[in-house]
Design a protein around this nucleic acid. Structure first.
Lengths: 220, 220
DNA sequence: GATACTCTGTAAGCGTTCTGTCAGCTTGAA
DNA sequence: TTCAAGCTGACAGAACGCTTACAGAGTATC
């Protein structure tokens, strides 16, 4: 699950990033309102955490523009204590939930989970695929209930594929989502990783689309 | 889709070329401002990525000249972190979007996609045609929902035709948009490619206009 | 600390698929 | 009917992805 955190206070952003990251979310932070707007306009996030007091373009404006352009991603807004007018405006502008600062990071995690669950119409922390099941909370894949020992990289790959069911994801996209930013592009690391994942879960789990990338197999 | 990358830093140019190339774009690089200006003035690109700090003729000048001469191709400018004056000037000079260095290559790809989508007036990344549907995001063509396995080149061709619905596109134009820069012009590769696409989607999908080029079939 | 083990990226070799080339054929316009 | 434009099938080189072996980094164990 990919979450966008639009927050200019670096301390808060760090706390959110770490809390969400530990809970298995892929977190992307932006501190500038206009940049945040662009990103959610061009990339598919599963949820957005939006601070209303952002530089360049304030949160409310950003939110209104998203909704006007058809961005339906659930948005949780952060407001300062006592600013109830902001909350009202936020909800009217299309926010799905709000949290008042200061907050417990875990509360945010819980609410984001709930938002995503509602928006997808599914209980998301556990994703079944074939005879397997991926559990984002415990960061494990189980086969008929028995836990399988995937390596961290393997887990990230299958999680990413499962979260992008029905799409074909390119090697480049995989690289950018599960590797460091400065990662060597000409390497065949992704191919090797796919091979290793297949060795564990069966060859059909990941389907190759030559020249395009990879998808989940038809039965998953 | 043909994209011009005007960037003098060879490392950055390489990263962009590879990222865009893998995402199905036809990429042409120029490191010199004046040459870049000339190319976009004389050739039809679908989008341009422009570094503002170019030798010979700086990016802003290039951009202004294009706009003055009626070049309407969407332009995404690259600026160094913190140079917000540059961004403002760029937007005022007619840029459609900007990205701050350093950036994720995939972000550029997403934004270029969005720019092209907007400039062509195609609201959604999914374009239905007959019983088929083309999805630019997942890079797939589906028939009644079932995915078809087109090769990368076949996919680029049908995508280009769909983006130019109602027009007849010449073989030369196709060559310029979906092949490498240095591609041999006397080859009959386009004819072969059209034949292969027809074999997959049915003969009527692409109509030949002898002496002029190809269009989508009447029913599409 | 030494040793063994796991994880993960690199590199080389191989098979498969893709795609441009070519030669011969068909089609359509004048 | 003629002839250039376009079509088609065979082929071969290139591109792409898979596999395997290996090595360095990190971690656990004693």
């Amino acid at each position: 699950m990919k979450v966008l955190v639009a927050e200019d206070d670096e301390r808060i952003a760090d706390v959110l990033q770490s809390a969400l990251g530990r809970s298995g979310f892929e977190v992307h932070c932006e501190s500038d309102g206009e940049v945040a707007w662009y990103r959610a306009d061009t990339e598919a996030f599963d949820a957005i955490i939006l601070d209303l007091g952002l530089p360049q373009m304030d949160g409310l404006t950003v939110l209104k523009r998203w909704r006007r352009q058809g961005v339906e991603t659930p948005v949780l807004i952060l407001t300062a204590r006592g600013q109830w007018e902001e909350r009202v405006e936020g909800i009217e502008a299309g926010a799905d939930d709000y949290v008042v600062k200061p907050f417990h990071a875990l509360e945010i995690v819980a609410r984001i989970r709930a938002l995503i669950r509602r928006s997808k119409g599914v209980a998301t922390p556990r994703i079944p695929f074939g005879k397997y099941e991926l559990d984002m909370r415990s960061m494990q894949v189980t086969e008929d209930g028995r836990p399988m020992d995937l390596t961290p990289q393997e887990f990230r790959l299958i999680a990413y594929l499962l979260h992008n069911r029905g799409r074909t994801v390119s090697q480049l996209e995989i690289t950018e989502h599960i590797y460091r930013q400065d990662f060597e592009r000409e390497s065949n690391a992704v191919e090797v990783l796919v091979a290793r994942l297949r060795k564990r879960l069966g060859h059909e789990v990941v389907k190759t689309r030559r020249g395009f990338g990879y998808t989940l197999g038809d039965d998953y």
